[in-house]
Structures are given as structure tokens and as C-alpha cells.
């Protein structure tokens, strides 16, 4: 199915990745690619191993077998921070923020990370207007500029999700890894985020883990279906909709 695409070098490529926890095969021979400019959605029922897979890509877990290549470099041995530096921008399924810091400072941290070393000991960050301005731009992109000085702990759930997105943007990644960005956003929020992600794909390709099927069908160029750690099908929206194996294993239960 994807063979025609092989001419273009994938941004992210997983080859025969395995990962088990004891007897549980959480990732069972997974191969997938993320191509430039596309949104590749990863769907599957709860417990299918989507988060485990994301964590292997982000570097929190390492696969038992198989390889993960990013920009044609093998990621083996690189930790979470190194992969982020290379351009993997991830968001977390459950918001993960520096809660005592303001929204602005959370984004500033990301800007500071992309600008190189954090081993700068003297200049106060809150007097570093360039840093503040740069961070403000990303807050504006997610329409959070009015909440810039509120500590993350005091933000609402939806605002925290937006802040996560602003941080991911600030990393100027070469690929986005978005782990259920719609979770708990409500119908309005999901709709707005769908529009937002649709534009974002031009900035960098997106590997999107998502339960919201409306969003997935609206956004995805390709969909991979993960069931019990295995990819049972990969294809376009239409191919996946009509795939009997998928209907049986997954959509059959959901719809």
C-alpha cells in the first residue's frame, strides 16, 4: 500500500519494533513511517499499546528489538532530551507542565532549550525581552496570551492542553508526536484544535494518537490501526473505513 511513497524519505520510520512487559506483548512487530507533510493517525482500542509505542519513539522506553529512525538517524541510545533536541516535539496524554511556573515561563523554557545551552548563569530570564517575546508568539498561536502570567497549576484543563501545544510549537520540531491532544477538550475545543492541526501539518508532519474519530477522519492522510500491539492495517481514511479486519477488530466495537 505504502510502497509508492517509498521514493520520499520518511521523517520517522519504525522497523519491526518489539516490546514486551513480562508475558504481555505491548508492541508486536510494528513498522510504520511518517512522511513529510502528512498527518499519520494511530488509532486502536484502549490497551492496544499506543502509549507504549509513543514512549518508545520519544525515548522513555527502549524497544526489545527493531529500530526507530528519525531523519535517517538511528535513535538507539538517544535519551528523551536528545531526541527532543533532534526535533521530536511531543505532547503528553495527561498534561505535563512545570506547575509552579506561569504559562509564559513554561513556553520560555522550551524556547530556551531550542536556543542552545541552558548553562547560562547570569542574565535574569524575566529581563530577557527577546526570550519573553519569542515565547509570547507561541502563546498567541494557541490564543493563550491573556493567560501568560497565570501559574500552570491554576489553568483549566483545556488551557493546559493549549499550553502543551504552545510548548510543542516552541520546540520548532521536525515532527510532532501528539498523544491524544483532544482528550477532555469538549466538542468546541476539539473542533478548534482540528482546524489548528490541519494547518500545523505544513510546519512538520504529525504522528497523531487520537480517540476522537471525527478528528481522525477529518485530518489523517493515513491511518494505522493498532490492536494488541500489532498493526492490523495501514491506509487512507477510505481504505481503513472499508477494511473488514478493522471493522471487526476495532470500529465494530466503537461505532
Amino acid at each position: 500500500m505504502t510502497d509508492n511513497n517509498l521514493a520520499i524519505a520518511p521523517v520517522l520510520e519504525l522497523r519491526n519494533v518489539f516490546k514486551s512487559f513480562g508475558a504481555l506483548k505491548a508492541t508486536d512487530d510494528v513498522s510504520l513511517t511518517l512522511l513529510p507533510g502528512e498527518i499519520h493517525a494511530l488509532i486502536g482500542p484502549n490497551g492496544a499499546g499506543k502509549s507504549t509505542l509513543i514512549r518508545q519513539i520519544s525515548g522513555e522506553y527502549s524497544p526489545d528489538h527493531g529500530s526507530i529512525h528519525f531523519l535517517e538517524k538511528d535513535l538507539k541510545g538517544s535519551g528523551v532530551a536528545a531526541r527532543a533536541q533532534m526535533g521530536l516535539g511531543r505532547t503528553f496524554q495527561v498534561s505535563s507542565l512545570a506547575l509552579e511556573f506561569s504559562a509564559l515561563r513554561n513556553v520560555m523554557l522550551a524556547v530556551q532549550a531550542t536556543e542552545g545551552t541552558s548553562f547560562r548563569f547570569f542574565k535574569p530570564v524575566m529581563k530577557d525581552q527577546d526570550l519573553i517575546d519569542a515565547a509570547m508568539v507561541f502563546l498567541q498561536e494557541v490564543d493563550m496570551q491573556s493567560r501568560a502570567n497565570i501559574p500552570a497549576a491554576e489553568l483549566s484543563h483545556g488551557e493546559r492542553r493549549k499550553l502543551e501545544m504552545a510548548i510543542a510549537l516552541a520546540l520548532k520540531p521536525k515532527a510532532f508526536l501528539l498523544d491524544e491532544p483532544m482528550a477532555g477538550m469538549g466538542p468546541e475545543g476539539s473542533k478548534a484544535l482540528t482546524v489548528f492541526l490541519d494547518k500545523l501539518r505544513h510546519q512538520a508532519p504529525i504522528l497523531l494518537v487520537e480517540h476522537d474519530m471525527d478528528a481522525v477522519f477529518a485530518l489523517a492522510d493515513r491511518i494505522s490501526v493498532l490492536v494488541y500491539g500489532r498493526i492490523v492495517a495501514t491506509g487512507t481514511v477510505d481504505e481503513i473505513r472499508t477494511n473488514p479486519a478493522v471493522r471487526e477488530a476495532y470500529l465494530g466495537e466503537e461505532v
Partner: peptide
């Protein structure tokens, strides 16, 4: 939040 710091690449 250690995970947040790693995820931005520090």
C-alpha cells in the same frame, strides 16, 4: 516536572 524538562530537550 522532570519529564517536561526532558521533553523540551534539556
Amino acid at each position: 516536572n522532570e519529564d517536561r524538562l526532558s521533553a523540551v530537550g534539556i
